[in-house]
Design a binder for these strands. Structure first.
Lengths: 205, 205
DNA sequence: CCTACCGATCGGTAGG
DNA sequence: CCTACCGATCGGTAGG
């Protein structure tokens, strides 16, 4: 991506590319989450950024590149948090608790990105697809490791991958129904769901 | 919907409307699940049915009607199964087990419809949307009732709606990762997931 | 059920 | 030669 600046046609002073990139990713994230990937046109994105569609093409190759940026930056951040937890202090059980609550918080606080993860990752192609898949694989492997360390051999008869996907799946499903402004405030939701997972489903017998 | 018949342009003998409807719903289900709702064109659907796009419009009002048919017939079937379980024999705990395993089986055996439920129900509008939402509400209410009967007051400190959404969410998430031809055969998956839910997460203390 | 089309919009690109 | 864009339009396809 190159850097954009003002709203007018003047050559305009160069702004930092990082700032521009932020704006593009934020706009794409909002629109893809709201209208869907196919439901968002290049014109929609350009309008959001106060550009013409032609100008948008000066910065990006197309919607696919924007989707890749959204997914890669979001997933990289998500993975970094889990790595901090894995490498941080605490016993295995505490790390699992933090990993679970981190995942819950991510789904609640970054709804738009998570919605795009879950719905449109399949639209990625070629090398962006492989790169994103690599980050996702690392996240899942790391989560499995944290899970296995915390569980020990307390659940020998159940497949560890099934457990991991089930835990992540129940948290991810928040995106479909949870309303932070609803009956259950975020901190209550987090603690109840966390207890349902850790003190019930994954309790050591 | 009217009824279609052969592949040629002859007025062709009237076949049962039911047979035609089946073919339309089957084609729409396959394509929407494979390519997405917006990713499926009217031309794609017509080709699948050996019709021209213009002819397709003779039978249906458009993609929205097909989506509504797919969702309503699928959801009605899904609800009927749960009603049979609720009204059938057995104690509350057995009914809950059947309800859970029924849901698992539905996700495994009717992947295409479930994928459309989860991804494209939001694209419905107006009265089809309300009708579908009504069926979904009834399913969720019935599931909550079965859940509450089975749990009694064994989990007084956790919100029953959170429990319901969590149970349904973890089962629904199978659509994202479970491969019936993979490492876990369907019957093993069903029994392990069922036990994870019933004997662990919802165990009576 | 087909042929012959439409208004509009799609993602993407031309020259300047 | 490069940057940062613009107005206008390209070839095709959407639903109807």
């Amino acid at each position: 991506m190159r850097s954009a600046s003002g709203k007018t046609g003047r050559p305009s002073s160069p702004t930092s590319g990082a700032e521009t990139e932020q704006a593009f990713i934020a706009a794409a994230t909002r629109l893809f989450a709201e209208r869907g990937f196919k439901g968002t046109s290049i014109a929609d994105l350009a309008r959001e950024l106060n550009l013409t569609t032609a100008s948008l093409y000066y910065y990006v190759d197309g919607k696919q590149e924007l989707l890749a940026r959204v997914l890669e930056t979001g997933m990289a951040d998500f993975l970094a948090r889990l790595q901090d937890i894995a490498e941080g202090m605490g016993d295995p059980r505490e790390k699992l608790e933090r990993a679970v609550e981190n995942h819950i918080d991510f789904v609640i606080n970054r709804r738009d990105v998570v919605r795009i993860f879950l719905r449109y990752r399949g639209m990625l192609q070629d090398s962006p697809r492989e790169h994103y898949q690599g980050l996702l694989d690392r996240y899942q492997l790391l989560f499995t490791t944290i899970l296995a360390d915390a569980l020990g051999d307390s659940m020998p008869d159940i497949d560890i991958v099934l457990v991991r996907q089930t835990v992540l799946g129940m948290i991810n499903s928040l995106i479909e129904w949870y309303d932070p402004a609803g009956r259950l405030p975020p901190d209550v939701l987090r603690s109840q769901l966390s207890r349902l997972i850790l003190e019930r489903m994954l309790r050591r017998d």
